[in-house]
Design a protein around this nucleic acid. Structure first.
Length: 479
RNA sequence: GGCGCUAUCGUCUAAGGGUUAGGACAGGGCCCUCUCAAGGCUCAGAUCGGGGUUCGAAUCCCCGUAGCGCUACCA
């Protein structure tokens, strides 16, 4: 059975690039009946933060693509250290006593750094003696640089890869404080956790040669590798927490009102496409269509600005959420709406009880003009609250001659009428307009303005029934 | 500097030897219409440059150029 892993390090919040990597891992696993492991790569104790871990877990949970196993790399430390000892013992690795920061002279001269002089050939006896005397060292992998040829692997995305042994530097396995490095920990874990497919960012493409060498030295089966093109910011640089800030945080998209399925749909289209011009896809459809071999090799730019608000996100991401929002079964949409109202402090228990049908009706009437869930509490305020304001254009509609007075009359008539449906309201409005010899539009638009403070929204008659008779009479009389 | 990866509309992408180089988002226009959306129709918009190979190249090869990644006792 296939086993894939997503291995973020908790040194910053989960960003879009990480989420895309997770989505592709997940899609690959699910499309092949495999399992997804979440492995928190927390070997760099100094840089880990609790907050980052929370951001990663929150962001991942929000995506609603569940994983099967969860691991913490820090808890597997003894395995890593043991592996390093074995490599040292077999001679596949050696101790490098060069003090930190020294020994990069070639690099300064423009030559590539491959290893520190004199350390590869240190005899066992001397190496042991210096280590025993407490001299700090880093454990390095002894790359077989005298061997002709090089390391090869067939990347699922980038195809055949080759690198000369002589171009691979003797990378560190253990730092001088005894901590395992990423290369060691990651490789040992991939081996021991039975990972069959390593799907990760293209920034690891050249690291893979080191991992292959390590895997081989440790006697693990080699997993398949698939590297994903990178996500770039509008400035063309690799997405990073440092450079692009909270703007690219997954939880930020959640808070802006994106729908998980819309966001996942958007991410899935970055570097991959189903090749049939279909862009709006549900998660099951993505699983069905996803093929790792057809992932592209070109980096993709994620659009976003530096000011807050929906206009600053990639418009396609917004559009996709809007599409899902108006197409998904209303029952699936309601829990998200409830959350939004709760977060705004607008929630009323009766919306889950007596007024549940009304709540569903209202959302269903409103959703064709929403793109993000958050618009429920911004543009749709007047449907849920009585303390709404008036836009300038709405005010203008009310200022038109005779409108206020007619709206007051309308309020009285509606109040007096037993019936209150879209049809009955339309009749009242049209007959009043006819009586006064004015165009119905004047009253229709005036009503919308009075009832919602806006000039835009659902059909005016619909607006009446959503808001309800009592509130309509009150609002019309009040203008 | 060294090693590597990549290059199609503004952005995401399709076409992988023969197409008027297709679609989507964003933008313009029209239709629908009580407004705004949605929906339908439509316009504009691209093969990085130069050489090859070929009857024919966006597609294959080479050279440039540009971008990105790696080059750490970060991951």
């Amino acid at each position: 059975m296939n086993r894939v892993r997503f291995a973020p390090s908790p040194t910053g919040f989960l960003h879009i690039g990480g989420a895309r990597t997770y989505v592709f891992n997940w899609l690959y696993a699910r499309s092949t009946g495999g399992q997804v492991l979440l492995r928190i790569d927390d070997t760099d104790a100094g840089r880990n933060t609790e907050e980052s871990l929370r951001s990663i877990l929150d962001g991942l949970r929000w995506l609603d693509l569940p994983w099967d196993e969860q691991h913490f790399q820090s808890k597997r430390r003894s395995s890593h250290v043991q592996a390093a000892r074995a490599l040292l013992a077999s001679g596949a690795a050696y101790r490098d006593f060069t003090p930190e920061g020294e020994g990069q002279t070639e690099r300064a001269a423009g030559e590539p750094w491959l290893f520190n002089p004199g350390m590869r050939e240190l005899g066992t006896a001397e190496s042991d003696r210096r280590a025993d005397s407490g001299e700090p060292f880093v454990a390095r992998f002894r790359v077989p640089r005298d061997r002709p040829g090089g390391a090869t692997f067939k990347d699922l995305v980038y195809r055949k890869q080759f690198r000369r042994f002589s171009d691979i530097e003797d990378f560190a396995l253990l730092r001088s404080n005894g901590d395992p490095t990423y290369h060691l920990a990651s490789t040992v874990d991939d081996g021991e956790l039975g990972i069959t497919h390593v799907i990760r960012g293209q920034d690891h493409l050249t690291n893979t040669f080191k991992h292959i060498l390590l895997l081989e030295a440790l006697g693990f089966d080699r997993p398949a590798f698939g590297h994903l093109p990178l996500l770039l910011g509008p400035d063309g640089s690799k997405l990073s927490k440092r450079r692009h800030g909270a703007l690219v945080s997954v939880t930020n998209y959640r808070d802006m009102g994106f729908l998980p399925r819309g966001f996942v749909n958007y991410l899935s289209l970055l570097g991959w496409s189903p090749k049939n011009n279909q862009e709006l896809l549900e998660v099951p459809q993505l699983v069905e269509a996803f093929r790792i071999q057809q992932v592209l090799r070109t980096n993709a730019v994620v659009q976003f600005g530096d000011k807050p608000g929906s206009a600053q996100c990639d418009p396609k991401a917004v559009w996709l959420t809007g599409q899902h929002l108006r197409r998904m079964p209303i029952g699936q949409l309601m829990p998200y709406c409830e959350h939004v109202l709760r977060d705004a402090g607008w929630w009323l228990d009766e919306l889950a009880g007596r007024r549940r049908p009304w709540f569903i009706e209202a959302v269903d009437s409103l959703r064709s003009r929403l793109n993000l869930l958050s618009e429920l509490t911004t543009r749709c305020r007047a449907y849920f609250r009585d303390d709404y304001g008036f836009e300038a254009k709405a005010r203008n509609n009310l200022e038109k001659s005779g409108v206020r007075e007619m709206l007051h009359v309308l309020a009285d008539r509606l109040d007096a009428s037993k019936e209150f449906t879209e049809k009955s309201v339309e009749q009242e409005i049209r007959s009043l307009a006819a009586e006064r010899g004015v165009k119905a539009g004047l009253l229709i638009n005036g009503s919308r303005a009075a009832l919602t403070g806006q000039t835009v929204g659902p059909s005016a008659f619909r607006v009446f029934t959503i808001i309800g008779k009592a509130r309509c009479v009150k609002r019309l009389s009040a203008v």
